[in-house]
């Protein structure tokens, strides 16, 4: 009888020990998350994008200067053969071309996963848009929130263009909208990413070459035009091949 109790006690102790060991191992593994560096590279065609200084040209002999480029990236996910293997928690990034730290993400991912695609939303989803006051990159002090008609501005592009018929040749595109039929948030999926890090390029030439800045040089509210422009912006992201 006593021996039985003794053995079972020892067994319980052993199981406990093993359990603690496993827990520590799993904690250790978690702590060893690896860093996946992702760089964002805004360009204009084959030129680096310098805001407020450089002039760029497109086919119609238009001279263009970019002054503001800010946009939200949310719901970062990594995929393997179309299946989500990792998703970032509380995933909201305000990218501002003038803030170099916002152009580099160090994603903390488990070392064991394999993946070949990244997906993200260009903008802020509808539910977040109606969730009240939020902090961090979503704080309304960041200048990416419409006050007269609530909602986040997903993408902000401002500058000068010789073809723009607006005052001082300006153009301003504030793209947003979270309600049907003006949903402007777009999903972007990019293939062939490197598991050790990669560079995402956003080429504004691909966007502006489609526009006629003489006729359309500002968008300031959710509209069918904002949806059209968001689609153009969606197509301007690509992975720089190694």
């Amino acid at each position: 009888m006593l021996l039985g109790i003794f053995i079972s006690c020892r067994l319980v102790m052993k199981v406990k020990f093993l359990f603690i060991l496993l827990l520590l191992c799993s904690l250790g593994l978690q702590a060893q998350n690896k860093v996946l560096p992702v760089l964002l590279s805004p360009v204009f065609g084959n030129q680096k994008l310098n805001v407020g200084t450089d002039w760029y040209h497109i086919a119609r002999a238009d001279s263009i200067q970019i002054q503001v480029l800010k946009f939200y990236v949310s719901k970062l996910r990594l995929l393997d053969k179309g299946k989500v293997v990792w998703q970032e928690e509380n995933s909201f990034h305000l990218v501002d071309v003038e803030n170099s730290t916002s152009l580099k993400w160090n994603l903390l991912i488990p070392p064991t996963i394999t993946f070949s695609q990244i997906s993200f939303e260009l903008g802020i989803d509808s539910i977040t848009n109606v969730s009240g006051a939020l902090g961090g990159d979503l704080d309304p002090t960041k200048g990416m929130y419409w006050t007269w008609q609530n909602g986040y501005i997903n993408f902000k592009l401002e500058g000068l263009a010789s073809s723009s018929s607006a005052n001082k040749n300006e153009f301003q595109f504030h793209l947003g909208g979270y309600q049907y039929p003006f949903l402007a948030c777009k999903t972007i999926i990019l293939d062939q990413i490197n598991e050790d890090g990669f560079v995402i390029e956003i080429d504004l030439k691909k966007v502006l070459v489609q526009a006629d800045l003489n006729k359309e040089n500002h968008i300031m509210s959710p509209s069918i035009e904002a949806v059209k422009w968001s689609h153009w912006v969606q197509k301007s992201f690509s992975i720089i091949p190694k």
Partner: peptide, 28 residues
Amino acid sequence: GSVNHLDMQALAPINHPSEMGENIKNVV
């Protein structure tokens, strides 16, 4: 109904040029 949440209500008059004419960044 242009304001979708009570939290965001105050932003509209703060920003409106004919109301408070301010922006929230300055207020902060």
